[in-house]
């Protein structure tokens, strides 16, 4: 009852959107598609939700063929598009009611599934959907996508444009839904959210870079990585980029993530180089790679 794609290609006119996409999502898995804007995530969602026909390849959702059985798929999946796609002139309750009705069910029938989520927006049930905050909109959209008890849930960038607190709550909800046996495919441009998935596929420019558990992706990172900090961060980055032994340098929160080309690397040597370049307040400490580092490394190739 999971999702399976093999060798999916799709182009718009001459622009290649996705190429040779192959992956499987196991039943009951929370699977993340991680990649920047324009990587092809939405195209994959639209192919799986039967909105687009692939040029090549095969795919199934809950054991149903996306081309032949598209009607059955439309009955049994929940889909939350990337853009807020509810009726802005309808109230929260009217929206939910509408989606329940068109799926031939009622709010009461499946209330236990959406209870956790809907309770948070229930105080605003008479407010027009267009007047909700970003986080509340997403909760409403998720409620609407869940109201018919789908077997598979497709969430295209559900947390984009949502505040950090609401994002965290949203992911907690996904975990709870997963426990109820719903297979979830979710996409996000936020690397920190990737760690919350069971498995992830890193995707860029329409191609999959890696598929694995988040920790495994990180473990494959080939280099030692260092947090570097200085008073003048801008100058630090510039200096590091010009340094002959630099392998990679990326700004990362309050630090810069640095990797060195050499097999044997001494932090003192780098410290000396930076000091001689006129930088003050330098700290250099080893750290762990995370998904963003892994993504950057894979994207480099």
């Amino acid at each position: 009852m999971g999702i399976s794609l093999s060798n999916i290609d799709k182009s718009y006119k001459k622009q290649i959107a996705v190429r040779n996409i192959t992956f499987d999502v196991n039943p009951g898995e929370l699977f993340g598609l991680i990649g920047p804007d324009g990587a092809g995530k939405t195209t994959i969602f639209r192919i799986l939700t039967t909105l687009l026909l692939p040029d090549n390849g095969k795919a199934t959702v809950a054991g149903l063929d996306i081309i032949k059985d598209y009607k059955a798929i439309r009955n049994s999946v929940g889909y939350m598009p990337g853009r807020f796609s509810l009726y802005q002139d309808l109230t929260v309750e009217e929206n939910l009611n509408f989606f329940a009705t068109i799926f031939g069910t009622t709010i009461a029938e499946n209330y236990d599934l959406i209870k956790d989520i809907y309770e948070q927006i229930a105080p605003f049930k008479d407010r027009r959907a267009g007047k909700l905050s970003g986080g509340m909109k997403q909760k409403l959209a998720l409620s609407c996508a869940l109201i018919h008890k789908p077997k598979v849930l497709f969430l295209d960038e559900p947390t984009t444009g949502v505040d950090p607190v609401s994002r965290k709550e949203f992911w907690e909800m996904l975990k709870r839904l997963q426990k109820r046996g719903i297979t979830i495919l979710v996409s996000t441009p936020y690397m920190d959210e990737a760690a919350l998935c069971d498995r992830i596929a890193l995707i860029q420019d329409g191609e999959i870079l890696a598929i694995d558990m988040p920790q495994a992706v990180v473990n494959k990172f080939p280099k030692d990585i260092y947090n570097v900090k200085a008073d003048n961060m801008y100058k630090l980055i510039q200096t590091l980029q010009r340094y002959e032994h630099t392998y990679s340098v990326f700004p990362f929160g309050e630090f810069v993530h640095y990797t060195d080309k050499r097999v044997i690397f001494k932090t003192a040597e780098l410290q000396q180089h930076l000091e001689s370049s006129g930088l003050n307040g330098i700290t250099i400490a080893p750290t762990h790679a995370d998904i963003e580092d892994a993504f950057m490394e894979l994207a480099k190739k």
Binding site: T50, L51, R74, S85, L86, I102
Partner: peptide, 13 residues
């Protein structure tokens, strides 16, 4: 235009 057609298409309607 508002993207709601996308959801209507992915529904039993």
């Amino acid at each position: 235009e508002l993207g709601t057609m996308e959801i209507l298409l992915v529904s039993p309607l």
